[in-house]
């Protein structure tokens, strides 16, 4: 990758982080390259360091050792803080902790207002973000009266209005039901197709199969990294990292024991059925 590309990637090099008062590092020597227009799923058991890594990406936490360069900006430089925050937006598990506006419109305008943009530009960004997320009809509603799924969409619209290069989702789907989750994942795909880089921390392996790449953390270190097929295809390996393997991969593994080699690593029901009927 050429030097010019650094302006549009997030580069994590040798990143370590230990919470104040803790003796055990939450992250140790993490190397990672996140690219625009790609989705990266971040997996790992509770306490593996997923959320800590997510928070390091936009400067909410600063490296104890190593370096995070977000779109060419070293997050450890205090002078870069605002620019990092503009480029790398975050949404969290519980939207209630993030919503402050009394209407959806105000909520979405909060970020751009903080950037000190002219009123007309704020208006345009809010309208565009609401449209992108598909919640224009909610614009005058009170955020706290909305469903959990709608609240999460509002939080994402707020992030989108910042026109970030990256969106980091820290388990934004984990409290949502299936229908709401699908809507969020479709939205991530739309943003990704528009060139945004998506980092999605999740417990759901089925969500991770949709990503371009998967990173599994274990005790603060990268335990596996690659395509969904490379990282999630082998149920034994997945289990050893404290994750619940995809049912389809367990069935494929059982089929192999019965003398049926299922060609390639299957991750979905559809793929396993196409093998069956081939």
């Amino acid at each position: 990758m050429g030097a010019a590309d650094a302006d549009v990637t997030i580069e994590v090099q040798g990143l370590s982080y230990t919470y104040p008062g803790s003796e055990v590092p939450a992250l140790q020597g993490v190397d990672l390259l996140l690219e625009p227009g790609k989705t990266c799923a971040l997996l790992g058991r509770n306490g593996s360091g997923k959320s800590t890594l997510a928070r390091c990406l936009n400067g909410l936490l600063l490296p104890g050792a190593g370096r995070v360069s977000a779109c060419g900006l070293d997050t450890a430089e205090a002078a870069n803080a605002l620019d990092v925050y503009r480029r790398v937006a975050m949404v969290f598990q519980n939207p209630d902790t993030q919503l402050v506006g009394s209407t959806v419109e105000e909520e979405v305008a909060f970020g751009p207002e903080n950037l000190g943009l002219p009123q007309a530009e704020i208006r345009a960004r809010v309208d565009e973000a609401l449209d992108m997320v598909g919640i224009t009809e909610l614009s005058s509603r009170q955020p706290l009266r909305l469903s959990q799924g709608q609240k999460q969409l509002v939080a994402i619209a707020g992030a989108v209005a910042m026109k970030p290069h990256f969106l980091v989702s820290d388990e934004s789907t984990s409290m949502l039901d299936h229908a709401a989750r699908l809507r969020i994942l479709e939205l991530f795909e739309k943003l990704r197709a528009g060139g945004m880089g998506i980092v999605h921390v999740t417990h759901f392996l089925e969500e991770a199969t949709l990503a371009d790449s998967v990173v599994v953390l274990e005790r603060g270190r990268v335990a596996a990294q690659g395509t969904p097929r490379q990282t999630l295809g082998d149920p034994e390996k997945v289990r050893s990292m404290g994750l619940d393997p995809l049912a389809v991969t367990v069935v494929a593994f059982e089929l192999e024991k019965l003398g049926h080699a299922v060609s390639g690593d299957v991750l979905t029901v559809k793929e396993l059925l196409s093998w069956l009927y081939a």
Partner: peptide, 17 residues
């Protein structure tokens, strides 16, 4: 289930198929 906002677990979807 889809109209109720839910889905079968992955193995359940396979079993149903």
């Amino acid at each position: 289930l889809a109209s109720l906002g839910m889905q079968l677990p992955q193995w359940g979807a396979l079993a149903r198929e």
